[in-house]
Structures are given as C-alpha cells and as structure tokens.
C-alpha cells in the first residue's frame, strides 16, 4: 500500500526540505513513511537529518554494481530516510537506469513515499519526481515569484497526469489571508496549511534535525501537523505504483 507525493516548488528557498521532513514526521505517527532526496543534483536532506557523514547514499546505490538500497536507507526520527550525497562526481558516475528499480523497491515496502524535489523545472531529472508522484504538494511563499513558479509546477504536474495534493504556504509573516484566498482560485487541491516563518526551522537545520524533532511545540510544527492531517494519504496498490516507477523515463545525469 503506497501513495507517492512529490514536494515541489519550482523556486529555491521556500523550505521544501523542511516541509518534506515535517510532513513525513507527522504522517509517520500513522503510516510507514519513506522520505527520498529526489534532488539528486543538489543534496540537502542529509543536512536536515544528521546524515552529513552518511557512508552510503542514493548515489552509491545508483552506481554500476552499487550498494543495495537498504544500505542507503536510514531509520531516523521514525521514518526511513534515503539521502543523496553531495558529490556531483558521484552523481555523474551513477547509473540512472537503476533509479526506477530503486524507487520501485522503496514503493513496495512503505505506506507513504515523499520525494523532496528539485527547485527547478529546467531539466528532465528535475521534473521526474513530479511525473512519478501520485500527487504533488506545491510549496509556496506569499511572494510573486514563488506563486508564479508554483503555478508552473502545478501545470507541469497536471500535464503529466499527476494530481495536486494541495498547497502549503510556507515562511509566512503576518496575515496573508487575502493572498491565500485569492491564490486558492488558481490552485487545485486544498490549502493544506499556512506555516509561519520560524527561526526554529533554521536552528533545526543547523542541529541536523527535522523541525518536528527539534522544536515540536513551535507554531510552525503545529501548522505542519495540521497540514499533514489534511493530506489524507490514499494508500493504493503498491504493485501498481512500483510498476509505474519501473516504466518511468529515466533522467540523464546533468
């Protein structure tokens, strides 16, 4: 039983990785959750989960004759975490053909798969998580560039047959009720939540912990838990999802 979500924004700095891990930790209270750093060209997840010195990462799994996926899967904070390494050389040495098998394997052993997606739509590998996901969580900020890029992510997702799980307004300062109400007209899916800007998010990253582990009582953590409640995963047939990953197009290395 699995539903795959891509957490995407099209623009950097919106707090995708923080959001991915926060939603993952909140959902892990009820589901078996696996979080994958699908931003293979610019790894980030490892720094948020205290895995900066991880011996084996997704890159090693993607090497010809590489490590098994289990070796790059770490049980952290109640979730299975699959980080990417930071070496571009390692990524270039990786065999992208193995990616679909790897992700299909993960899909067959978890309830909820969260793909932390690249902050761009500029390449095939960046768009792939959106194509593979059942539903896309669009992370927005109340700024014109973030809204504009979020709309593009949505149109890509819908064009490629993925649904929109909803929108998450992150790093919000003050009252943005007008903005979220007006944005709602253009975005599919519900407003999952409005996450207040939080110094705790930066502190959590510096400590190598997800926000919900570092500052579970912060207003931002509470807002993420509410958002996860709205997400309501539909844990579908694992074999169907695994098949889709296997048949998906494989990105070229950048």
């Amino acid at each position: 039983m699995v539903e795959a979500f891509a957490v995407a924004s099209g623009k950097g700095g919106t707090g995708k990785t923080t959001s991915t891990l926060a939603l993952g930790m909140a959902l892990a209270e009820e589901y078996d959750v696996t979080v994958v750093d699908a931003d293979t060209g610019m790894a980030n997840l490892l720094f948020h989960t205290g895995l900066g010195d991880a011996d084996t990462t997704l890159h090693d799994v993607l090497l010809e004759g590489g490590a098994p996926i289990e070796a790059a899967t770490y049980e952290r904070f109640g979730m299975s975490v699959v980080p990417c390494g930071t070496s571009l050389a390692a990524f270039e040495a990786a065999d992208p053909e193995r990616l679909r098998t790897v992700v299909a394997e993960l899909a067959s052993t978890t309830d909820v798969l969260l793909l932390d997606s690249p902050a761009t739509l500029g390449s095939k590998s960046a768009v792939l998580p959106i194509v593979l996901a059942d539903r896309v969580v669009v992370v927005l900020q109340p700024t014109i560039p973030a809204l504009s890029d979020g709309l593009k992510v949505q149109e890509y997702a819908l064009s490629y047959g993925s649904e929109i799980a909803g929108t998450l307004f992150n790093r919000v300062r003050g009252d943005v009720g007008d903005v979220t109400a007006k944005a709602d007209r253009y975005f599919e899916g519900p407003l999952l939540g409005t996450i207040p800007e939080s110094e705790a998010a930066g502190a959590a990253r510096a400590a190598g912990e997800p926000l919900l582990a570092h500052a579970p009582d912060s207003p931002a953590a509470a807002a993420y838990r509410e958002a996860a409640g709205v997400l309501d995963p539909r844990t579908g047939d694992a074999d169907a999802v695994a098949d889709r990953f296997r048949s998906a197009v494989i990105p070229e290395p950048p």
């Binding site: 900020q141 504009s148 149109e155 819908l158 064009s159 003050g174 007008d178 944005a183 253009y186």
Partner: peptide, 26 residues
C-alpha cells in the same frame, strides 16, 4: 511580501492564465 502587490498580481486573471498556459505548452 508586499501583500498589496501580491493581491494585485493574483487579481490579474489574464496574466495568471498566461503563466499557466505557457507552462502547459512548455
């Protein structure tokens, strides 16, 4: 965020539709 500017942006339905349709074509 300049909420006024953002609200103005979101009120421009034609401009939003252009962004969406450009993205669909792309």
């Amino acid at each position: 965020g300049e909420p006024d500017a953002i609200v103005e942006f979101l009120d421009d339905e034609a401009a939003i539709e252009r962004i969406r349709s450009d993205a669909r074509q792309q």
